[in-house]
């Protein structure tokens, strides 16, 4: 008995340790399965599509054959370089605008709102209660040519085209509005985490309020700035609703191109190639940006 018990105990211990080690992997399975079925497989299929050959060149309706036609990429880029560049231009403008609007807002909610904090946070996410599409349609009315916003700004002589709707201003305004909560919330959460003692300490160490803000608050809120700009920039670069509903024919973005290639023209290889270019470009931009921001250790 005495000799058997310890060895039995050791085995039991071993089994327990083994189970404990495998637990994290077991927990990963549902997520991995989901990603495999709904991300990796479609991604692979998209890659395959982007390299297909047309059965009859110039007539997409005739269908496509599997192949390895790398030229799809260069022809797509040549045809749509303008929309491609415009996407990143609009997305960058919307991101900067959203940052300028969201930072003071998040700062106010985090430090100055007192008992209204939760109420204000609900207001920030309140737009999500209505559909993205409905809200963007609403902006058509707000920015309509005979609406008071356009009239008012036009009377100030600030509009070269005498209208807002169907101009780049409307598209960038729509993008900024639609992604503002994605900028505000991460900013709020990183500002809210800042220990107010640190700001007091900065004042105690001869920093005037604005210097303290610049030297302590801003660096400590950088993770929120990085997260917020990514969450705004990435979806904005691929967005097509705003350009479609608020922009004119000359304001089309890469999303609109992909949309029309897939749904209307049915030139699947071109659409797939554009999607891939967009995906890779965003990946590169994000990687460079996160490296540059130097916030890996803060994230």
């Amino acid at each position: 008995m005495v000799a058997v018990l310890p060895s039995g105990g050791a085995k039991f211990e071993q089994a327990r340790v083994g189970r404990r080690k495998s637990t994290p992997y077991l927990l990963l399975i549902p997520g991995l399965a989901w990603l495999t079925v709904f991300f990796l497989v479609p991604l692979f299929s998209l890659a395959q599509t982007s390299l297909m050959n047309a059965r009859q060149p110039g007539n997409p309706d005739a269908g496509f054959l599997p192949g390895f036609n790398v030229a799809n990429y260069s022809s797509a880029m040549q045809a749509y370089l303008e929309q491609y560049a415009r996407s990143f231009e609009y997305a960058a403008m919307a991101t900067v605008l959203a940052l300028i609007i969201a930072y003071p807002l998040a700062y106010f909610i985090a430090f100055r709102s007192g008992r209204f904090k939760n109420f204000l946070l609900v207001l920030v996410v309140a737009p999500f209660f209505a559909s993205f599409l409905i809200r963007t349609y609403a902006w058509r009315t707000i920015l309509a040519d005979d609406g008071f916003v356009t009239q008012f700004i036009n009377n100030l002589g600030l509009l070269p085209d005498h209208r807002i709707i169907a101009t780049p201003i409307a598209v960038v305004a729509g993008l900024t509005y639609n992604f503002l909560p994605f900028m505000t919330l991460p900013l709020y959460s990183s500002l809210e985490k800042i220990d107010v003692r640190l700001i007091e300490a900065a004042g105690d160490l001869y920093a005037k309020p604005f210097t303290g803000f610049r030297k302590v608050t801003v660096p400590l809120s950088l993770p929120g700035v990085v997260a917020g700009t990514l969450l705004t920039f990435i979806p904005a670069a691929g967005d097509y609703i705003n350009a479609q509903l608020l922009g004119g024919p000359t304001d089309r973005m890469i999303g609109n191109v992909i949309d029309s290639q897939f749904i209307q023209i049915r030139d699947y290889p071109t659409a797939a190639a554009m999607s891939f270019v967009l995906l890779v470009t965003i990946l590169v931009v994000v990687t460079v940006y996160v490296r540059r921001a130097g916030t890996e250790e803060l994230l």
Partner: peptide, 28 residues
């Protein structure tokens, strides 16, 4: 506070997490 020649050692230390020790000390 920034106008008086009085400095505080805070209860929670309140060291600036984004600065190294040298820069923390050099801050003032």
């Amino acid at each position: 506070p920034y106008e008086r020649s009085i400095n505080t050692v805070f209860q929670s230390y309140a060291l600036f997490p984004h600065l190294d020790i040298f820069e923390n000390v050099a801050f003032g």
